[in-house]
């Protein structure tokens, strides 16, 4: 590792100030599970590393009308939290399929999002849940829909000095369902080949028919950023869920993916998996308990 200055400020303001001072040569450290690997490999050589781990405000997880999920909350804490398990089971389930127990003790939701890996698992379900990013700068704050937070592979919307403070997630209404399924080579310690999150606000339109009042389909690991399959959403929104419509939506979702070949899978396979994962989750909604 190249030498760097280490800071561990107690407030978001101080952290933001240091990061702003160092500009592109400063890096925020939360769980460290990505940052330290990149630094050890010499991919990143920051002059300043600013630990966010003394800042209590970043660790809050509270329900006030909506869930405020502090950026510094670990995946392990999400899995164990009553709020996540009760109101947002998709988050607990997603976290529990990431890496392994040991890494989940360190890795944070904010770190997963800020690294902006195309395969970041927390992004698709959070976008499907309609989450917003709460961003604090040196002397400003702003809130961004999470889907606008990702700019490119490894690139997020933060400017130097800005810190992702929390994620705001609206409380789900009755009849709201959200799931995330990914495909991996192994059952743990792996990265998604492809992942799909589906959320839907459902109503009964007839005895056994589910109407899709609203829907989001978010694709992971198949585009430079987590990506909504808007054409697939479009043909479902406001309509009854039928097998034919679901097949069509799954095909559309696959066509909206922009996968590449890499060490985890080929583009053709990833595209096809988007169709399978989308279809399976939509089919499950046909019998969702209302």
């Amino acid at each position: 590792m190249k030498p760097f200055e280490f800071f561990k400020p107690a407030t978001i303001g101080d952290a933001s100030k240091i990061l702003a001072d160092y500009g592109r040569e400063g890096r925020a450290l939360a769980g460290g599970t990505d940052l330290l690997i990149r630094m050890k490999r010499g991919q990143w050589t920051p002059r300043a590393v600013v630990s966010l781990n003394r800042i209590a405000a970043l660790r809050a997880m509270e329900m006030n009308g909506e869930l405020q999920l502090g950026a510094r909350v670990t995946l392990g804490e999400i899995i164990r939290s009553a709020e996540a398990r009760g109101q947002f089971p998709v988050l607990a389930r997603t976290a529990s399929k990431m890496a392994g127990v040991q890494v989940r003790s360190l890795a944070t939701v904010g770190g997963n999002l800020c690294n902006a890996s195309p395969s970041a698992d927390m992004a698709p379900p959070l976008i499907a849940l309609g989450a917003r990013a709460d961003i604090a700068g040196r002397d400003h704050e702003r809130i961004l829909p999470l889907e606008d937070f990702f700019v490119g592979p490894g690139q997020n919307a933060l400017v130097p000095g800005e810190i992702l403070r929390a994620i705001f997630i609206p409380r789900p209404a009755d009849g709201f369902f959200c799931s995330y399924v990914k495909l991996e080579h192994r059952e743990a310690m792996d990265i998604a080949i492809a992942g799909v999150a589906v959320s839907a606000q459902l109503a009964k339109s007839a005895a056994e028919i589910r109407n899709c009042l609203d829907v989001r389909i978010v694709l992971g690991a198949v585009a430079p950023v987590p990506r909504r399959a808007k054409r697939a959403e479009e043909i479902l929104r406001g309509n009854d869920l039928t097998r034919e419509r679901i097949q069509e939506a799954a095909r559309l979702a696959a066509s909206e993916a922009q996968p590449i070949d890499d060490v985890r899978g080929s583009a053709w396979y990833r595209r096809q998996m988007i169709e399978v994962l989308t279809r399976r989750q939509l089919l499950a909604l046909m019998t969702a308990p209302l």
């Binding site: 392994g100 080579h185 192994r186 059952e187 743990a188 310690m189 792996d190 990265i191 060490v263 985890r264």
Partner: peptide, 10 residues
Amino acid sequence: LDYRVPTALD
């Protein structure tokens, strides 16, 4: 991470 030795779950 990418040379995938089976884990206990595999």
